[in-house]
Design a protein around this nucleic acid. Structure first.
Ligand SMILES: [Mn+2]
Ligand SMILES: [Mn+2]
Ligand SMILES: [Zn+2]
Ligand SMILES: [Zn+2]
Lengths: 157, 157
DNA sequence: AAGGCTATTGAAAATCATTTTCGCTATTGA
DNA sequence: TCAATAGCGAAAATGATTTTCAATAGCCTT
C-alpha cells in the first residue's frame, strides 16, 4: 500500500509549528524548527537537555546560542509541544509531549543515569482523581521511580 | 541524591542521631541536630529547602552557614533520615523520610507553589512491580501531580 | 513589494542554588 | 587525655539557566 499523499507527515511539520506559534503571538524561526526537528528525529524514549541540543546542532553544522535554546524550550513547553522532565540531578530534560491519557513514566538508575520508560494507566487515574477531589485543575503528572539498574548492580557487587 | 539502599530507615529519637551518624563514620554535631529538630517540629506536610532552614535557624538565634546546611542535608539523606524532593522550580526540598510502603505523594499548584500530600498504595505497587520486572533494585518513587489550586483558579478567572 | 513594529537572536554579563576550598575547631576512639 | 581527622564558617568557585542589549528578521498592514 502506498502512503496517502493527503495525510500529514513530518515534512509538513514546519507549517504546523508556524501555525501553533503564530496563534499565540510567537514567531516562527529556523532555530525553533531545528530544535523541534531534533526531538522528532530522536529515538523514542530519548530525552534531551539544553547541552545535548546545543551539541547535536553543532554536530550538524548549526550554530545556535544557549539563550536561544532555553527560550525555544520554554516557548514549546508553553505551547504544549514539549514536556519538561525533572529526571534528576540539576538539569532539566525535555521530550515530545503526548496526550494526557497516553503519558508514560520513568525509571531512573541513580548510578549511571540510564532511563527507562513505562506506561501505566493507573497513574493518570490516580492523578485525575486526586486533583479533582481537591479542586485542582490537572496539568500533568510525573511518576519517577529511582533505583539501580541491573548492570550497575553487578558493578557494585 | 538517593539514600544508600543498604541502610535501614531508622526512626529518629534525638539521641539516636548520634548513633546513626557514628555507625557510618560521621560525627554528631549540634548543627546536624538542630536541622533535624526543625524537621521534627515542622507541621506535617511541610517541606523545607536550604534557604528556609537557614532562615528558621536565624529566627531562633542560631547562626549556621549554608555549606553546613547542605552538607547536613546530604548526610541525612544518605542515612535515610530525610527524603529529597524535586517538587519544582530549581530548588530541592526535604522532609522526614518514611518507610517505603507508607510513602506519600504530592499535588503541586504551579501558580502559587502550594503543595498537598496524598497517600495511595497503588504508587508503591506500580513502582515495585516496574522495577522488579526490569531488574532494577528500587530505592524510591516520586509521584508528582501538577495543576492549579482552587484559589488560583478563581484568581485567574 | 515595501515598511514599520516588535519578537527573536547571539554574545556577554548576571543570577542563583549549590559545591568546593581552606584554615581552624570540635568530635571520636584509643 | 590526646592525636587523628570530620566538620565548621567564610569566601570563592561552579554550573545551569536567565537577563541585557544592540542588531536582525518575522509578521502584518499598506
Ligand atoms: Mn520519556
Ligand atoms: Mn511530603
Ligand atoms: Zn545504572
Ligand atoms: Zn495556587
Amino acid at each position: 500500500m502506498q502512503p496517502d499523499p493527503a495525510l500529514p507527515n513530518l515534512n509538513q511539520e514546519p507549517e504546523l509549528l508556524k501555525t501553533v506559534l503564530n496563534k499565540e503571538g510567537f514567531r516562527f524561526t529556523s532555530q525553533r524548527q531545528k530544535i523541534l526537528d531534533l526531538f522528532q528525529s530522536a529515538a523514542l524514549g530519548h530525552h534531551l537537555n539544553a547541552e545535548e541540543i546545543h551539541q547535536q546542532l553543532l554536530d550538524q553544522g548549526e550554530k545556535i546560542s544557549f539563550s536561544t535554546i532555553y527560550r525555544a524550550l520554554h516557548v514549546m513547553v508553553r505551547l504544549g509541544l514539549l514536556q519538561e522532565l525533572e529526571l534528576a540531578e540539576g538539569r532539566k530534560y525535555y521530550e515530545l509531549n503526548t496526550p494526557f491519557m497516553e503519558q508514560h513514566h520513568h525509571l531512573v538508575c541513580v548510578h549511571c543515569g540510564n532511563v527507562e520508560e513505562f506506561e501505566d494507566a493507573t497513574m493518570s487515574q490516580v492523578g485525575s482523581s486526586e486533583s479533582t477531589s481537591r479542586g485542582f485543575s490537572l496539568l500533568n503528572c510525573q511518576f519517577t521511580v529511582y533505583g539501580i539498574c541491573p548492570s550497575c548492580q553487578s558493578l557494585l557487587g
